[in-house]
Amino acid sequence: MTGVPAAAGGPARANGAAAAPAPATGTAGVAAHGQSAAGPRGAAPAAAVPDGPEGGPPAPAAHGGVSGDAVSGGGPESAKPARGGKIAAAAVNQASVWNIANLLTMLRLVLVPAFVALMLADGGYDPAWRSLAWAAFAIAMITDLFDGHLARTYNLVTDFGKIADPIADKAIMGAALICLSALGDLPWWVTAVILGRELGVTLLRFLVIRYGVIPASRGGKLKTLTQGVAVGMYVLALTGWLATLRFWVMAAAVVLTVVTGLDYVRQAIVLRRQGIAERKAALEETEG
């Protein structure tokens, strides 16, 4: 009876080279012979396993993939594939700068000088040129709605987009307000209030970024929409009741600009106090 286990176990270990290696064999059983990759279902050998950024199975150690020790949780080789993966991911992110969201942002930046040229053409009072300027302004505002949505929905957020998107927003709005005030269509104090609020909120975000991020509120989004509609109506050469209507739309935009600006100041103060309190509590806990 003692010979039966020896016969069943001995030959299987001696001749079963295609079987999965014992845990003691480690990397030698996987990387050297490559037997564990081709199991009983007749799968492709380890050298044929694809690798790449598409998320396929890891390649064998000879191709810079995950070795047997990395799979089993041991061995120094496991650190090298992780660094290679980060480098590959960084390369993909760098290449994704040329995506549809960033292209729309670049289009808005290009539209700024085009809008100014159309707005000031022929003295700035020709209805035809003002209509073309309105079209450029409308395209810029519409692309502003889409590029952010596309970037968040399809994971196209890049460092370039984070910097260029707010610059493009403020550039087209600032150019329109300054042109309207220079032509005498809009009081300078309105332009000063709107632009001062936008620059102030941007500076405020940078000042409290160490404590957290001030999220965009519904009031801020409504303010942006109202400003776009009001400025667009002023760009067009409107008369009659439409000219009266645009005055009230701009008045609503100014009110929303001031109210939302004060709300951002309140949020910044609260965020700063919370951040200071949390740091103080963490310091006391560490010292205690």
Score class of each variant (00 low, 15 high):
Y154C: 03
M173E: 12
K162F: 04
A136H: 03
A133T: 03
I139L: 15
D165T: 07
P166V: 05
I163G: 11
K162P: 02
R152T: 06
G123E: 12
D147I: 04
I163C: 11
T153G: 04
K170D: 00
T143C: 11
I172E: 00
A164V: 09
I139S: 07
A140R: 01
I172D: 00
R152H: 09
A133N: 07
D169M: 02
A138L: 15
A164E: 06
A164H: 06
A140V: 03
G123F: 11
L150I: 08
Y125M: 14
D122R: 15
A133Q: 04
G161E: 00
A128M: 13
R130Y: 07
F146I: 07
G148E: 00
G124E: 06
A140L: 06
A128V: 14
I139C: 10
D147Q: 06
I142C: 07
N155K: 15
K170I: 01
D169A: 02
A128R: 15
H149G: 09
Y125T: 14
T143Q: 05
L145R: 12
S131W: 09
M173V: 13
M119K: 10
G123I: 10
T153D: 07
A121C: 11
A168T: 05
L145N: 11
W134L: 11
M141N: 09
Y154K: 07
I172G: 01
A135K: 15
M173Y: 01
I139G: 05
D169E: 06
T153P: 04
F137K: 07
D169R: 00
P127H: 08
L156K: 07
G123L: 10
D169C: 04
A128K: 14
D144Y: 01
L120T: 14
D147S: 08
V157E: 08
T158V: 04
N155R: 15
G123C: 10
A121V: 08
F137A: 03
A133G: 12
L156E: 03
T143H: 07
T143D: 06
M141D: 01
D144H: 02
